[in-house]
Amino acid sequence: MPIAPLFRPIDVAPAYQKVADAIEREIVNGRIKPGDPIGTEHDLVRQFGVNRSTIREGIRVLEEGGLIRRDSSRRLHACLPRYSKLASRLSRALVLHEVTFRELYEASMTLEVASIEGAVERASEENVAELTDNLARSGAVVGDPARLAECDAEFHVLVAKASQNRVLQLAREPAAQLFYPTTEMIVTGVAEGGPRLVAAHRHLIDAIRRRDREAGVLWTRRHLQDWRRGFEKIASLDRSVEHMYMEHAQAARRR
């Protein structure tokens, strides 16, 4: 009878990943600040005691994550990752964990309500003008699901921007990236989807303009509940994001 193992295998990370992790730790901990020089590849080869190809691969990982950049002299500097890079990494993590659309819906209800509350309180005239311009463009493409989906995604980014809360802007992006393709699916499959979306956006802008928190929260909830009802006409909320998008991509290739 085999004896149950007492220990787990040791996970030995590649050398380039150890280099990337070491530099990332210093940036995240604040010991290396955005804009601070990190040196050249030659400097890092000497400090880490590894070959140049290992350093280059570690740098590639950090550049893709938006944590370092090169200047014109090829020297490396720490930098803040862009929202899009962080959001993409988190979105991939959500997909790998096989999150469902029900989970996305519940989390988004919290984040989008917080965004509209902040926007109602702090939106500037410029923010309202950007939202109004988006509404006009949305109305012009209401019969084009793909372009309307782009306008819808932009609208919610602008609401978060109007909240003047950068944490909210960053927090909502990973789920928003996964929501984005569903808008096109719903508008394509549900005849009233496009007009209802544009109408909800109009009410939200009006609430922001009037500083009406109650109306803003009400229409945000209605807007997301509309999304849920539309989505349930084409799929189950308990489907995983990964499986749903794989099927959608396969269907698109067959068309």
Results as ranks from 00 to 15, higher is better:
Ala13Ile: 07
Pro14Gly: 13
Pro14Tyr: 03
Pro14Lys: 02
Pro14Cys: 02
Ala15Asp: 15
Tyr16Lys: 02
Tyr16Val: 01
Tyr16Gly: 08
Gln17Ile: 15
Gln17Tyr: 11
Lys18Phe: 01
Lys18Ile: 09
Lys18Leu: 15
Val19Tyr: 04
Ala20Ser: 15
Asp21Glu: 10
Ala22Cys: 04
Ala22Ile: 01
Ala22Pro: 08
Ile23Pro: 01
Glu24Pro: 10
Glu24Ser: 14
Arg25Ser: 10
Arg25Lys: 11
Arg25Asn: 13
Arg25Met: 08
Val28Pro: 08
Asn29Tyr: 11
Asn29Phe: 14
Gly30Glu: 01
Arg31His: 05
Lys33Gln: 05
Lys33His: 11
Pro34Gly: 02
Pro34Lys: 02
Gly35Gln: 02
Gly35Arg: 09
Gly35Ile: 01
Asp36Arg: 02
Pro37Gln: 07
Pro37Ala: 05
Gly39Ser: 09
Gly39Val: 00
Thr40Pro: 08
Thr40His: 03
Thr40Asn: 08
Glu41Ser: 13
Glu41His: 04
Glu41Asp: 12
Glu41Gln: 10
His42Thr: 11
Asp43Phe: 11
Leu44Glu: 00
Leu44Val: 03
Leu44Ile: 00
Val45Asp: 02
Arg46Thr: 10
Gln47Ala: 07
Gln47Cys: 05
Phe48Asp: 02
Phe48Asn: 07
Val50Lys: 14
Val50Phe: 00
Asn51Gly: 10
Asn51Asp: 12
Arg52Met: 05
Arg52Thr: 09
Arg52Cys: 05
